[in-house]
Write a protein that binds this DNA or RNA. Structure first.
Lengths: 224, 224
DNA sequence: TGTACATCAGTGAACGCGCGTTCACTGATGTAC
DNA sequence: TGTACATCAGTGAACGCGCGTTCACTGATGTAC
């Protein structure tokens, strides 16, 4: 077996790590120029390879983008999982999860854009065997799986539940708030200035309010 | 002065209403295919005109998209304003504003996409005089103005304020939640199913929770 | 009311470009004997 | 250890396409006299 080789560190006729390198390059360009602005030719050039070489590893452009999205969901899940298994009280850990989400969206805009603007089309990348290989097995993370993950986290953090309010209800609210903050921030539309909270503060306070709101609703509080 | 003519209802050499027709066509295609998928050639063809005709009214592709975004912000402001001036208690009217926001995002995906994915570049469309005309005057709505509008609405709805919590803080939270719900829904990523709330329910409960959370924070509640 | 003319809003052909994808090919790799 | 050969991962040239934009032009409009 070949030794692992850094993505853009090519030597000789064979690249040795082309698939990974292309994914990384795509991620980079999507981050810089958006899904629409990303180009196969650019990715190939950055990697130091002919555009045609891409087709040894992917069915085409769409498949490459789908693979980036796939990796993004995996990476996000890992980060959220790590936060949830960190030290501190359940609430602290849950808060840390929110921070991890925002940090992911900020640090990995290529992933984030691929995850949330790619069409939910048929499964993307080819197996290592190349274009003729069998279709990918069942494991395909998506927004749905990420959501299930959040639901579990909420259940763990508030083991007593929300007394009549579906946990998924709260989960959707929390996710929507996180997503809204992340995308507004990425678009440069999040109001900023002296006296205004940063996005982490914003999410922390918002999530607390949403959770408390649900708890009070569940207890028959006249808040609704 | 010429009589008004329906956007796609052309007769004779002169279109008579080309600028409006192009904006409407662009809005339509952006809704269907996204900002990246929208094409000048398609818009011109739909309107029944040569692509070159576009340049009598816009500096180019970017300017047309910017004009669509501009119209979108205007339309959104109108809708929010209408909701805020409707009947009922202040809270009812504020709730209606949220519904108007979600309805706008759903009914006008072309506007919404143009508003939130177009770069905040230099001002777009040409004045009616054509390419050589003077630059547009100061009135250019953007996310910033829409935000100010929301702040005012919140102040009107809760005239006593939030006792120590900046109104803008609450406004950002409400906006982020609305934007998150709207975009997740548009991307088809909003979890749905029996027992799960629709987006309007989601926003209503969420906004209430956010507002109450701010009120309690402002009163020194241990919720934070 | 008629005619000359300036103005404006379109045409249509052409441009250069860069895209994604295909194809027959070849250089490198690694395995069997 | 050496050699033949199958396999695989690249090349490079070419393709058809559709894009945004330009240009000199022309048809229609409306105003002045």
């Amino acid at each position: 077996m070949r030794h692992w080789r850094a993505p853009f560190d090519r030597q000789g006729y064979h690249h040795g790590n082309l698939k990974e390198a292309l994914i990384e390059a795509a991620q980079r360009f999507i981050a810089e120029r958006g899904i629409g602005g990303f180009t196969l030719a650019d990715a190939a050039k950055l990697v130091g390879v002919t555009p045609a070489a891409l087709y040894r590893h992917f069915r085409g452009r769409e498949a490459l983008v789908a693979e980036v999205a796939f990796r993004g969901f995996t990476e996000l899940s890992n980060r959220l999982g790590r936060a949830l298994q960190s030290d501190g009280t359940p609430l602290e850990r849950f808060t840390r999860m929110g921070e991890a989400y925002l940090a992911f969206a900020e640090q990995e805009p290529g992933f984030y854009a691929a995850m949330f603007s790619a069409k939910p089309a048929d499964g993307g990348a080819c197996a290592p065997g190349g274009p003729k290989a069998e279709a990918k097995p069942a494991e395909k993370p998506s927004g749905g799986n990420a959501f299930d993950f959040l639901v579990h986290a909420l259940s763990d953090t508030f083991p007593d539940g929300f007394k009549g309010v579906d946990v998924r209800f709260v989960a959707i609210e929390v996710w929507a708030l996180s997503h809204g903050i992340a995308t507004l921030d990425a678009a440069g539309q999040l109001p900023k200035g002296p006296g205004l909270p940063d996005k982490y503060e914003l999410l922390r306070a918002g999530v607390l309010a949403l959770v408390h709101g649900a708890l009070q609703r569940g207890q028959g509080d006249p808040a609704r």
